[in-house]
Design a protein around this nucleic acid. Structure first.
Lengths: 134, 134
DNA sequence: TTCTATGCAAAGACTTTGCATGCTG
DNA sequence: CAGCATGCAAAGTCTTTGCATAGAA
């Protein structure tokens, strides 16, 4: 059972055409829970000898996000982090190391979100606990 | 009681030298609770006839943040929003309009943040409720 | 062959850096 | 006069766009 099959099936299940570049990027993101920036993905591709362009990495990440294969995490204005865990959950963010750690949604109670502004619906509730190394 | 005095006093209380440019930027940010991006601040300065450069706006915002006069809110990777309310609180973020609204910290219960990773201390806990227009 | 989808070079947006200028002791 | 603080032009960094290419009908 070639693990590449998993990635291909996952792309197809989400309506994404499995091109070679998307399979390469998907292999890095979709086989295990990871938090990666676009640049980290590009580094890993280069290290593995791949020649996928930077623009294609960005476009692919945008496509994956639009199709629900990954989630964008906003912790640092200035670079997006992509999270391959798509079920609702929260994050520790260590501002000193840049390290991002998952917090299970069940571990955080969230009673009493106030009523939403008129004409809107809630799309997600995200808790970020910012840390500093001690 | 010239309101400009307020801004000057506030800068001095936080150890920031009140230069003309900083007073101009402070007047936009520090007199009332606002959420502004660097670009919005630049627009407002230009509209008021000011000639402060873009770089100075960015540098000043960084300085204000370092001295606790404003807080950076990470909602959109790609542009920072500066919040003149520095006491702990949370946010609604309308991804369609870009609008950011405060949620009082008392309105959201947050029982059970799991124990922190070893060697770290929590700096802040931020809840972001993402909205879409309906 | 025409039409659509794909991938990347080049362009754009946002932010930081390095240095010229002017002020302080 | 030496040294430091300040503000901005220019140089990054990160991301998106537009078009050439390749593939499908």
């Amino acid at each position: 059972m070639d693990p590449a099959i998993d990635v291909q099936a996952k792309l197809e299940a989400h309506g994404v055409n499995p091109t070679p570049q998307r399979l390469e990027i998907g292999a890095l993101l979709l086989r295990q829970p990871v938090h990666l920036s676009a640049d980290q993905i590009l580094q890993q591709l280069r290290a593995a000898g791949s020649a996928v362009s930077k623009a294609t990495v960005y476009n692919t990440l945008r496509l994956f996000t639009a199709h629900g294969l990954v989630r964008e995490v906003a912790v640092d204005p200035g670079r997006a982090i992509y999270d391959s865990t798509t079920v609702p959950h929260h994050h520790f963010y260590n501002a000193d190391t840049g390290e991002l750690t998952d917090i299970d949604a069940g571990a955080v109670g969230l009673p009493g979100i106030p009523s939403l502004p008129a004409g809107t619906r809630a799309e997600s509730v995200e808790v970020i606990v910012r840390l500093r190394s001690r």
